[in-house]
Design a protein around this nucleic acid. Structure first.
Lengths: 335, 335
DNA sequence: AAATAATGTGTGAACGTTCACATATAAGTT
DNA sequence: AACTTATATGTGAACGTTCACACATTATTT
């Protein structure tokens, strides 16, 4: 009943050669005569034989598999990156084992890494924008498997790819200041995210540098709902702002809604700048001025870097930095 | 330099037992004396030994791995499902190999399936809302690996989990008709998606059943941009509609934008109903009336069903059907 | 003509596990 | 005292590959 899985030996028997010859055919080894090669290929086709990659991995002690570790991919950025990483990996002959971690606790992370390490992945790419465990502890769990971090803390001596969040935040805030805004409030992302911290700190700094005082800042969780609630709190407690820097586009949407609920028009009464440039941002009402991050590139570069590390352990450790860019639309205007 | 990977034998040597005993300790086999067990566990800890799952898979000819096949997860639904499937699988001790297929062509799909099958995944869960290859061909590629389809065509004798799209579409259209709308247009999803087809057909049917004639229908690609463009075409070519059924929430956002650009107010001049209930939909302006789909449940049920099929091949083949539900907000009103 | 090189093919071992046994000791039963 | 049963441990084989060789055969050089 159960359909038999064929092996090298089955093919070898049918083709009248040894298993080694079949192996050579599969791996495109040159020293096989054209006739034999053809005959073997024919048998492979008729039998529907597929090489067992598990066995291959065992003997080669490399799996042609990459592990990807994420900390919640419900957000736009991580999702995009997972997709791009998968594509980049597939193009280079690697499969992807996907592991998401609900809470960035030591236990959960080390368990996930153990699992990947047990599967003998050749490398791990970790989308770790969250304050979780120290990189050293992470490496500990991975033993000698190379790891590339995406979007971790800025300035670490770790193989990683990051977006210059401070630069992006400065772009957003300076844009508002140049328009003439002086009373700028903020809705920031969860402050256990490196990116959220960096943007928040830079917002404070940029406002100060312009000679003004930062107004109130409320923390959201990236969701539109939290943006809505944050904006309501802002309106209640420190409502004289004329501009609002928001940690991502979804929260900006929620904030817009809260503002219009209170009769504050965007951008006439309040200017708003978001972050990410999700595809929908251009169709918000009004279309959202935002800071674009090239998530696709992040993923691509990350995979490429990881493969370099795998194939040559002496690849220098560095932090690839990408620059975000300001996209001006209609949600920001003169005060 | 290269850190040695330890094996059963290394642990056995250090603990002064045979490799088999170590194996027993790892697999919680009962017949190991408490002292020996403790001693072995101690050695495992100090050595930092991790069992090689590749070797285990080889001998057990099962990998504790599930393959997940997607056809573009940039959309909200698939993304949610991948996350949930991963969580459900992890809870049950399975890892996930993630494979995304750019274009649903036979070559790409069969290549992806070959790859999964070569990795000896125990089962495959395919988020296949797209007219791709026939299920029979798919099974062909998978040999005897169980497959569960998520969101495929309705009414097939295939292990699958689907949302009753026709029911959802009827909900949306009837809601508009009950409000008094007679001239209802549509922006549908790409018509190579089963869900888009079902919703479209049901829209036509429901409008007819009410005694009216369906107005123009334009096809989008699920993106807000395509919704915008579709609405503009609608406004240009058949503009007397008072209501609009849109294939998903993103396109609805784009459509709203196009309408307000043309001075048509939502819902005063045109009512709009979307699909999906993405978390942002409640914060559109106006908040979007939409049909909610429980993507989380889809994933959960899919995994559970797949595992049943894996453990008991005689599990009856069925199509789990989930019902969507209408969420009425402010984008729909009396004409 | 003999020595060397290139080509095609086959053999044994290894990768790190688990499975099916075999064995040894201790404990319980007739 | 002799048989059965239970417990704890060890041994050989197997999973399906690849690697490092060894061995023919043919082609090329000296």
């Amino acid at each position: 009943m159960k359909k038999q899985r064929y092996t090298l030996n089955d093919v070898a028997r049918d083709a009248g050669v040894s298993y080694q010859t079949v192996s050579r055919v599969i791996n495109d080894h040159p020293s096989v005569s054209p006739e034999t090669r053809l005959r073997v290929q024919e048998v492979i086709r008729t039998l529907g034989y597929r090489p067992n990659k598990v066995a291959k991995s065992l003997v080669a002690s490399q799996s042609n598999t990459l592990g990807i570790l994420t900390f919640g991919i419900s957000h736009f950025g991580p999702t995009q990156m997972v997709l791009n990483i998968e594509r980049a990996a597939k193009n280079l002959g690697y499969d992807l084992i996907f592991s998401n971690v609900g809470q960035p606790t030591y236990d959960q992370i080390s368990h996930a890494l153990d699992s990947l390490s047990g599967r003998r992945v050749d490398g791990i790419i970790s989308i770790s924008p969250v304050v979780g465990i120290a990189y050293e502890e992470m490496l500990e769990c991975c033993h000698d498997i190379p790891v590339v971090l995406i979007d971790p803390q800025f300035g670490l001596e770790i193989p990683s790819v990051i977006v210059d969040q401070r630069y992006g935040s400065r772009l957003a805030t300076e844009h508002l200041i140049e328009l003439g805004h002086q009373r700028i409030a903020e809705i920031c992302g969860p402050l256990n995210w490196f990116g959220a911290i960096a943007r928040h700190e830079q917002w404070v700094e940029t406002v100060h540098q312009a000679g003004f005082t930062p107004m109130m800042s409320v923390e959201g969780d990236w969701s539109a709902l939290s943006g809505y609630e944050a904006a309501r709190r802002l309106l209640k407690e420190d409502s004289h702002f004329t501009a609002l820097v928001v940690g991502n586009d979804q929260m900006a949407l929620g904030a817009c809604y809260a503002l219009s609920e209170h009769g504050r028009r965007v951008p006439l009464d309040v200017s708003i700048v978001g972050f990410d440039d999700i595809p929908e941002a251009a169709f918000f009402q009004p279309p959202l001025t935002t800071v674009r991050q090239e998530f696709n590139q992040l993923g691509d570069i990350g995979v490429r870097y990881l493969l370099e590390l795998i194939h040559n352990p002496d690849t220098p450790i560095e932090q690839h930095v990408l620059c975000p860019e300001l996209v001006v639309r209609k949600s920001s205007a003169l005060p």
